[in-house]
Nucleic acid binder design. Structure first.
Lengths: 153, 153
DNA sequence: GTATTCGACGCGATAAATCGGCGCGTCACC
DNA sequence: GGTGACGCGCCGATTTATCGCGTCGAATAC
């Protein structure tokens, strides 16, 4: 059941280009196409690979601004939490949200068209969600490294 | 040159499943396969789509622990910065690093096998990089939302 | 108002890729 | 030594990607 060397190399190949054909992967991992196809299907069925995404240039899509927003809730009742998380999930500009340790409760990753848009997301949406007490924003100045890859080898 | 409705719908389809075939995309966007194939190639050539990645279950790959680490540098000379950013890029457990506004200089996203591993990454690697003054860690307790998608429609 | 040009679409053909069935080799356990 | 399970590679049938070609429609020029 654990991943062997071939599985890891298949995943490594996909992390470079997830639209690579099975035949190409097969060549890279020194296997024929058939077992690669079968292993790929198994990795998907087992939930190791949960899907495939394009890597997009956010700037070219009109979202040049990235921010991390930390949020504190006033109380931690189920009602407040459910309401908050629901709103977060519905907001397309929040691309990630984690519950975290430390002085703040949540860390959000938000993408925006410009400062005005970010301001609108923050002031008109986030701070207005019931139960939100404190909001701290951190603007991204530069992406030093963004690797959608996990270490597999 | 700007993206029209078809381009956006092609991207939206890929965000659901980037290994979807051209014919499937074509059906979804009400176009034949040929223009979809051509538009796809153009989006790649123009750098709107920069590649394709698998979505992986980090837990099943042995990285159940996520942390955000904020780092301050003592000084901001080119030498210190280049050295720091170089080390970050070489570290496979740092999956993202941004230069940010606020009281800290950098925000890192780190993935680790367990607490001991995270401790090792922090204490044996990050704090030992010359020029690093202050390090604050935020552990991820729960992923409320992780959408690899950008709003396109 | 008509002609022309340009861009983008759809169709059909071809080469490549995928998928399913089959047989073989290897290993473990009788 | 026999047997069953597992995983590989090969092969043929179907699906998919890509290219050239003809066509249609909008915009522009005359």
């Amino acid at each position: 059941m654990p991943l062997d060397r071939f599985d890891r190399r298949i995943i490594a190949a996909l992390q470079e280009d997830a639209r690579m054909t099975v035949a190409q992967i097969a060549e890279r991992v020194s296997l024929s196409a058939t077992p690669v196809s079968r292993r790929l299907k198994k990795l998907e069925d087992d939930g190791v690979i949960t899907g495939y995404s394009p890597r997009l240039d956010a700037r070219k899509l009109g979202f040049p601004l990235d921010a991390y927003i930390m949020i504190n809730l006033q109380a931690h009742s189920d009602e407040i939490i459910d309401r908050f998380e629901g709103e977060i999930k519905d907001n397309p500009y929040v691309i990630a949200c984690h519950a975290v340790t430390g002085e703040m409760d949540y860390l959000l990753h938000v993408t925006a068209r410009d400062m005005e848009h970010l301001s609108e997301i923050t002031l008109k949406t986030l701070v207005r969600i019931p139960g939100v007490r404190d909001v701290k924003s951190i603007l991204v100045l530069e992406n030093v490294k963004t690797s959608p890859a996990l270490p597999v080898e």
